[in-house]
């Protein structure tokens, strides 16, 4: 998982494909990708409605639909505990699905549960911080992804959550604060410390 350090990117619905917006053809592709993402999002909402109505095959399909989305949020926060975080997120989602007032709010609701559960699981499974990293890998080095995970592992779960919500999910500070249940100022300070810590650790 790679966390961008250059500021938030737009939130992408499940399975959306990021495409550059350069020129008419690229713009066409972006519109197409957006339409595809919208269609997938509508499918998720429709599955949630059917699952709430008691159709367990719709529940099965909703699970297929949500696993990649939940994994993308939980993995960079919970790291090696990601399977536990994904499972526990989805257990909460499925237990509470019938209480979801508005199925159209499915994704925001799932995202909030995923971030909270990932932080909780990561804290529960907190382990010793490893030793200093080895020298920086060259670009394209297959070790690169593993080293990014290693650097992420040195941040606290709360700091990883802020990075994911701001820099990967593209939430603003107010939204991230509401989702994590902390003041906006706390998100700002955590984000500052997380980015600074990430840069410091990454550049040695």
């Amino acid at each position: 998982m790679i966390v961008a350090m250059t500021g938030p990117v737009p939130h992408r619905p499940p399975d959306a494909v990021a495409r550059p917006a350069a020129g008419p053809r690229a713009e066409g592709r972006t519109v197409g990708a957006s339409a595809t993402a919208d269609a997938r999002r509508e499918r998720g909402v429709a599955l949630a409605r059917a699952a709430r109505g008691g159709d367990t095959i719709a529940m099965n399909d909703l699970l297929d639909h949500l696993i990649p989305y939940v994994s993308a949020i939980c993995a960079p926060i919970a790291l090696s505990s990601r399977q536990d975080a994904v499972q526990e997120t989805l257990v909460v989602v499925f237990r509470k699905l019938r209480g979801l007032q508005e199925p159209a709010a499915l994704y925001g609701w799932v995202r909030a549960i995923a971030a909270r559960e990932a932080v909780r699981v990561a804290r529960r499974d907190a382990r010793d911080i490893p030793a200093e990293p080895a020298d920086l890998p060259a670009p394209g080095d297959p070790q690169l992804a593993a080293d990014i995970d290693d650097v992420l592992a040195r941040l606290s779960p709360e700091h990883r959550a802020v990075l994911v919500l701001r820099d990967v999910e593209g939430l603003d500070e107010q939204e991230a604060a509401a989702l994590l249940g902390v003041p906006e100022g706390t998100v700002k300070s955590r984000l500052h410390r997380a980015r600074a810590g990430f840069r410091r650790m990454w550049t040695g």
Partner: peptide, 16 residues
């Protein structure tokens, strides 16, 4: 995608 079959089954059961 990060969730094995037995874990999936526990999730499904949670919703029933």
């Amino acid at each position: 995608t990060g969730l094995d079959a037995v874990r999936r089954l526990h999730v499904m059961a949670a919703g029933i």
